[in-house]
Design a protein around this nucleic acid. Structure first.
Lengths: 346, 346
DNA sequence: TTGTACGCGTTATCAT
DNA sequence: ATGATAACGCGTACAA
């Protein structure tokens, strides 16, 4: 492997001092037009690029934002990343991403990687396992060390940091209200166990929406799965069993995977969507768009979340050190995207 | 923002020298049991972690692998990442990801970010725009500077570096042969323009499979789109138009999106899958799995590709400097995953 | 106009 | 057993 070009090498080659080279390349007026041209030509020819590592060490800044997310397949996370990258670029920051694969140890490892010099701060959504274990030491440690952290989507209230959320309860209401408005009377929900915050809040929204129009919540119409992002066979079986022979005309699910799986079993039972059963899903993504029939969703506006998260982080990074700590929680609106799965008014 | 704990700070606090602290923390026998304990206790209490940036600068190694990919939504890329991460972890490397969003400028930017110190080498799949522009200076520059590079999936032959590929031609044959075997006689293909290597090769495999059983290739059954990863309205319209009233009994597509879109229009035309038309798609992902009917796919074994790519890269990184340059191209097998869209033998 | 010295955080080598 | 020093690559205040 060849060695990368450094100021030192250029200096030796052109028989000047290192600082002369440095100044010349930064167009310092101190250096004579002559040598400056000479040095710049040489640097260009051999494609000199300053070493970021050295710069980071010197400046004690990396101008890099880290993102830690559980799973990247999700269209939602992709849009969040895009939002972060937009805002980062506007402020001259770089972005790097690591995945936790919903694995606690991996999340801790990644945080340490990013916290020990590679980034100035990070934006993260907790892994499923982390929320399950209720162990947030890696987070508090990072924060104690002065790493600015912004949490989004899957957050935990107790951690003192900026947060970007959607109003899950309102979003769920939006979705369930739409089912009600299109004539559904017996609406089931497929959600997660309560330790997943988003599941808990969306379940709450579902119940409130029903109650607000005088429908009493029927526990038999609530399925709480111990899964998110991915469905194992057991979870699939539970969905199938849950739907079997149930007298329902609407299903609300807290994510796409639950929705398409439910849709599949509903169609297998020779019911049609939306004529017999309407479906609304939280989280807008590729599955919902391309499914036949396409699914009505509550969209989370990931790009905006990403932009907001990056904005909060950059604010923290660039404010003067002495300023008092204070944390903000920003809410991003949800909106309903109507598609075929709710087209029929019953 | 608080300052991170450094050796210097510990040294000052405990009134010893920096090097004593460093040695104590690394369990050097030189340091007396007494002071060693004292220092370690202090470090642990205040959660000292060495600064990676400083280590990288000193060692001129980051032990970090960079991944640059066009789009992360793809299930395929996620599996590749997983493979890379597995292998990296086994060899004590970290992994950092950046996205090009199929944008040339972004790809260049990301390469520069990763090439200037943050990583020891990288693994990349080219963006659509890069292949279109046929401009690979950013790649050759990085390689010239001694950055080991491994390309996978969307590669370009001329660049001197390790490559990991699937045999696209063979994969396409696998898929098309399966259609033939299940009785299809009039098989269409939806593919990309030839500047996308994978599209070109898969088209070739399609043609060879047909010819090998004596079916003459009908140009009217070939649709070449100027899109990949994402479908704009124009591309959708072209698919719709292409399928309209065509007398076909099988469709092969080079990715999932094309497949589900085609499936949708086929069903809209009141044909059933697989009874009237069978479908096989390249690239196994969530869409194929969850679509109704689920789609038979040619799976790319992304995880294995990722593992192989990481292995090649790490080999390069750890071999002695003097060794002669030589590049390998590894091929990863494809395999057929049968699902409902080809269940019926015609 | 150019060069020297220092510091960012770390470790390895060489004193003491 | 402990400490001083140099080096990784860079930029800048200061000296010449």
């Amino acid at each position: 492997m060849k060695r990368k070009l450094t100021l030192k090498l250029i200096a030796k080659e052109l028989d000047v001092s290192i600082s002369t080279v440095s100044k010349a390349l930064r167009d310092s007026a101190e250096i004579s037009e002559d040598t400056r041209q000479k040095i710049k030509a040489f640097a260009k020819l051999y494609n000199y690029k300053p070493n970021n590592i050295a710069l980071s060490l010197k400046n004690r800044k990396t101008r890099t934002i880290g993102i830690i997310i559980p799973q990247i397949v999700h269209h939602f996370f992709t849009t969040v990343i895009r939002g972060v990258e937009q805002m980062a670029r506007e402020h001259n920051y770089n972005v790097i991403i690591t995945l936790s694969n919903n694995d606690f140890d991996k999340e801790v490892l990644n945080m340490e990687l990013l916290a020990n010099g590679s980034t100035d701060g990070f934006i993260l959504s907790l892994s499923k396992e982390t929320m399950q274990r209720d162990d947030f030491r890696h987070l508090t440690e990072a924060i104690d060390q002065g790493m600015p952290v912004v949490m989004f989507d899957r957050i935990v209230d107790e951690i003192p940091c900026d947060k970007v959320l959607i109003d899950d309860r309102e979003g769920a209401k939006l979705g369930v209200n739409h089912l009600i408005k299109t004539g559904c009377k017996k609406i089931a929900i497929i959600t997660t166990e309560d330790y997943i915050t988003v599941g808990k809040l969306r379940t709450k929204g579902y119940m409130e929406a029903l109650e607000s129009v005088g429908i009493t919540v029927d526990k038999d119409l609530i399925l709480k799965l111990d899964a998110i992002d991915e469905l194992n066979d057991k979870a699939k079986a539970r969905i199938k069993h849950f739907l079997k022979g149930k007298d329902i005309d609407g299903v609300f699910t807290i994510n796409e995977i639950f929705a398409v799986t439910a849709a599949k079993y509903i169609m297998e039972a020779d019911k049609t969507i939306p004529e017999d059963v309407s479906i609304v899903s939280f989280s807008d993504g590729e599955l919902s768009q391309h499914f036949v029939p396409s699914l009505t969703t509550v969209s989370q506006h990931g790009e905006e979340m990403g932009r907001k998260a990056a904005e909060l982080l950059i604010n923290k990074l660039e404010r003067p050190e002495e300023e008092v700590e204070q944390y903000t929680t920003a809410y991003i609106d949800t909106s309903l995207i109507e598609r075929e799965s709710t087209k029929r008014v019953k």
